[in-house]
């Protein structure tokens, strides 16, 4: 009996002392965590893609709470609605930001860009790019090994087996920017989604001199500067033999598209410019237009001159 009692008292005593120590420790060494962080994290999409530039959704939530302003912070997956919720929780003003989408700036399809050599190494853009300029004469273009496809968590990028070039599915793209980082050639860019998903961009990143670029690819930017002169808004700049359209300034008049002798400037998701006589059934412009860039171009070019001015007026309104 005595032994039993001794055991109960000793163990009970140890338990009590430990409890007191733990209680004091929990009070003294308590780490304060803002309850708002958990709340913000809850409204985030939990994709943990890192597109915001922070380590996962909880990291982004913490950054939002600590920063005290939502300036420059955007969850690319959730977009504006999620940021509005975050702003609500934190009692801050939501910062308007244009939704973006990944754009593959290469039009060097198998037809446009003849192959000069064959790469038989590991199917990885990073390794191919470290080995040499690529199978074609253009050392800037899409290698087609699909590093961007591998990193996309949303299944938004695929390599089109016909063109050999990466294509973005706009409905799935969240503009997290993973593909932008993965592309060793720096072809993919996040551009404003634009009104009605309409975009105008130079679909080429070739910085070689015009003559070399033209030889390498039939749809390359040759740095002629015609688009720069044509643009009424000064949205186009020419650097290192390569034109670039600033999407913040571009008003999508499409004058440059008509002017480009190489057809390197792409205008997508625009309605067809009143196709009259031609049997242009396949050129009815739908969101998946990029699969048929050649067809679209041909059509825009022929109709261009006459319709150009009119469309400009409509667009700028």
């Amino acid at each position: 009996m005595e032994v039993l009692l001794f055991a109960v008292v000793t163990l009970g005593g140890i338990g009590l002392v430990s409890a007191i120590v733990l209680f004091i420790a929990s009070k003294k060494f308590a780490v304060y965590s803002d309850p708002r962080i958990a709340k913000v994290a809850e409204v985030l999409p939990q994709a943990n893609c890192g597109g915001c530039g922070y380590p996962g959704c909880s990291g982004f939530a913490e950054a939002c709470v600590k920063a005290g302003s939502l300036e420059g912070k955007l969850c690319p997956v959730g977009g504006q609605p999620v940021m509005a919720k975050v702003a609500d929780i934190l009692g801050l003003a939501a910062v308007e930001s244009e939704p973006k989408v990944a754009v593959v700036r290469c039009n060097g399809t198998c037809a446009n860009r003849p192959k000069l050599s064959r790469y038989d190494g590991v199917k990885s853009c990073a390794i191919a790019a470290a080995t040499y300029g690529g199978e074609t004469g253009c050392s800037y273009g899409c290698l087609g090994c699909g590093d961007c496809v591998k990193v996309c968590q949303f299944g938004a990028i695929t390599i089109n087996p016909e063109t050999g070039i990466a294509e973005v599915d706009e409905s799935k793209c969240t503009a997290c920017g993973a593909c932008v980082k993965a592309c060793p050639k720096g072809i993919i860019e996040l551009r404003n989604k634009g009104k009605n998903n309409r975009r105008v961009y130079v679909s080429c990143v070739n910085k070689d001199k015009g003559i070399i670029a033209k030889k390498a690819c039939a749809a390359s930017c040759i740095g002629c500067g015609k688009c720069v002169k044509t643009c009424p808004f000064g949205a186009i700049t020419l650097e290192n033999n390569l034109a670039y359209i600033d999407f913040n300034i571009c008003k999508m008049c499409r004058k440059c598209v008509d002017e480009c002798p190489q057809g390197a400037i792409q205008a997508i998701n625009f309605p067809p410019r009143k196709p009259k006589a031609e049997p242009a059934a396949d050129a009815t412009v739908k969101p998946e237009v990029k699969a048929e860039p050649v067809a679209v171009k041909a059509e825009t070019k022929t109709e261009a001159a006459a319709e150009g001015a009119k469309t400009v007026g409509e667009q700028t309104k």
């Binding site: 080995t131 040499y132 300029g133 050392s139 070689d208 001199k209 070399i212």
Partner: peptide, 11 residues
């Protein structure tokens, strides 16, 4: 003075 593809495979 121009560019040439050297052994690295780049211009």
């Amino acid at each position: 003075i121009d560019t040439v593809i050297d052994a690295s495979g780049y211009r």
